[in-house]
Nucleic acid binder design. Structure first.
Length: 271
DNA sequence: CTCCGATCCTGATGGC
DNA sequence: TGCCATCAGGATCGGA
């Protein structure tokens, strides 16, 4: 479900709910495991700690306290929402966080690909050691992408979705960015020219920035922690548009599985 | 190291 | 109506 723009909007919406400055009072773990087993230490160690900030790295959310970081990943179907009483709890609510003020947040995740882990602050770097570059950072340039891709034979689409290379881009924004950059998703990463790398970097930055501003994309069930859907799905140019005319040349959009996931592109505009 | 497919899990959808 | 196969915004693991 959530790629960088959706995670960023969940982060912002949690801030708007007033989560920053809140002191943890109680953590309820209602399921044995998400991506990894939920550990009881969060129940003993977190109460008394105050949320100093909510940050994002890649598609991870971090609730930062003085001693710890609560690492949270939304997987495909994870979401947060405010709950007022036990009556508001629904199927697949796996973690209930109650703050001293009375504010209560529930983490819901039907497919349980999400993550909720307490880590010591000094272990944060280790937890993120295999993550690639943030696409909205200054480090992410055409030169950088060009150097990183030399010699690689995998499709460029797989490359930009590989979180060890570039973080935050998932299946939707990969197709959208490649279309904007006019680069065919099946091209070998190592064969992409410098000027194309520059175009692709610009396309990735633009599409992510626009999607953040539009509240992310809601295909089926994405909501921010306020229950709001995204609006960027209305501006998709190729994703899930198989057979529809390209907005530029009217050629029908094609689709096929690349890297195990459905991929969309214009066979005429993209080379 | 690189690359690819299988795997974790539930729910929605479409064909028969 | 039921049953079965397929697919879904992700990440990780193993083997080639």
């Amino acid at each position: 479900m959530p790629e960088l723009p959706e995670v960023e909007n969940v982060r912002i919406s949690l801030e708007r709910l007033g989560a920053i400055g809140q002191e943890f009072a109680d953590i309820e773990l209602l399921s044995p495991r998400l991506r990894t087993p939920l550990k009881k230490q969060v129940k003993t160690k977190l109460p008394g700690q105050t949320v100093l900030g909510i940050r994002r790295r890649a598609k991870y959310l971090m609730f930062e306290t003085e001693k710890f970081v609560v690492l949270n990943h939304l997987g495909m179907t994870g979401s947060w929402r405010k709950v007022n009483s036990e009556k508001d709890l629904i199927k697949h609510d796996h973690v209930i966080v109650t703050f001293r003020s009375g504010l209560r947040l529930a983490f819901n995740d039907p497919r349980r690909f999400g993550l909720f882990e307490l880590i010591e602050k000094q272990n944060l770097a280790n937890a993120f050691k295999s993550l690639g570059v943030e696409p909205l950072s200054e480090e992410f340039t055409g030169d950088f992408l060009f150097r990183l891709t030399r010699g690689l034979k995998a499709p460029i689409k797989n490359f930009i979705m590989d979180q060890r290379r570039i973080v935050g881009v998932g299946n939707i924004y990969a197709s959208e960015a490649l279309y904007r950059a006019r680069v065919k998703p099946t091209r070998r990463a190592g064969k992409i020219k410098l000027v194309e790398c520059e175009n692709l970097v610009r396309a990735i930055r633009d599409v992510l920035t626009e999607a953040i501003a539009a509240g992310g994309s809601t295909i089926r069930d994405y909501r921010d922690s306020n229950g709001d859907t995204g609006r960027f799905q209305q501006r998709f140019l190729v994703y899930d548009k198989s057979g529809e005319p390209c907005t530029s040349c009217r050629t029908p959009i094609r689709s096929k599985m690349i890297g195990g996931r459905n991929t969309y592109w214009c066979p005429k505009c993209q080379h």
